[in-house]
């Protein structure tokens, strides 16, 4: 009995040592220097940028998509359409980090609010992607829907808002959700323009603790939980919107 117990001693030691390492890493990463506050600040900024940029992106995206569809149908906005094509090409054709740096160091060089610049940058970038998603969604709606709306005497604007966009929105919700999830993860480069987001909070703590494991895994875990939560919410909203499809 005794010998058997003794032979487990090294294993127990190993676990004890492991536990000490983990506890030590945890303390250094979260407790010492009140680092958890830094994580909370970073988490808040990440969420704030993502949500605000998403709203901005949706507004820009819908406006751009509607203008492009209107032009495609009537040919009345050619100069604006050309301008919008440039916008789409530039913001979808260059990396978000480069756009962000240009915005921060050149375009808004005298704006001393990095958070605001980040929201604008991510919003404009996201708007370009949302615009294409929304445009495809509008084009996928049967033209008969527009004709029915217009034949009832509804204006082009009301027809778009009350008839086309609600249907398009339902169809593109999964794509929009993916766009928002991508946006959330892309905000991790906001640190490059001095914003203390979740990733940068991890950088700062790592630089101080010299322990990469806890801060990296923690940061990754928080993003993952956010994305999974978002996926879940989107799934529910989608199911709810599908109610009118029952057959």
């Amino acid at each position: 009995m005794l010998t058997a117990a003794l032979s487990f001693q090294p294993v127990a030691d190993w676990f004890a040592g492991m536990w000490d390492t983990i506890a030590d890493g945890f303390t250094r990463t979260f407790i010492r220097h009140e680092n958890y506050k830094l994580f909370i600040e970073g988490f808040g900024n990440t969420l704030f940028i993502a949500v605000a940029a998403c709203l901005l992106g949706c507004v820009i995206g819908v406006l751009v998509a509607v203008a492009k569809v209107y032009n495609a149908q009537t040919g009345r906005l050619r100069p604006l359409n050309a301008l919008l094509n440039v916008y789409l090409a530039v913001f979808r054709g260059t990396p978000i980090l480069v756009q962000l740096l240009i915005l921060y160091y050149i375009v808004f060089k005298s704006v001393d609010n990095a958070l605001l610049v980040a929201i604008i940058g991510f919003g404009i970038n996201s708007g370009a992607y949302v615009a294409e998603v929304v445009r495809a969604g509008i084009m996928a709606i049967d033209p008969g829907q527009t004709e029915a709306g217009r034949s009832l005497g509804l204006s082009a604007g009301v027809t778009m808002r009350k008839i086309i966009l609600p249907q398009a929105f339902k169809n593109i919700l999964p794509a929009l959700g993916n766009e928002f999830i991508a946006l959330l993860k892309e905000t991790s480069v906001a640190g490059f323009i001095t914003v203390v987001d979740l990733t940068r909070a991890g950088d700062l703590i790592r630089a101080q603790t010299m322990d990469p494991y806890f801060s990296l895994f923690f940061v990754a875990g928080v993003y993952l939980v956010l994305v999974l939560g978002l996926t879940w919410i989107l799934g529910r909203v989608e199911r709810r919107l599908r109610r009118s499809d029952r057959r």
Binding site: Y105, K109, S110, D112, A114, G191, F192, T194, V196, R200, D203, L204
Partner: peptide
Amino acid sequence: LKTYKSAIEASQDILNGK
């Protein structure tokens, strides 16, 4: 305290008044 990738970018922000 604002953090940067390098001292050169940080110095640029002095010139930009930030």
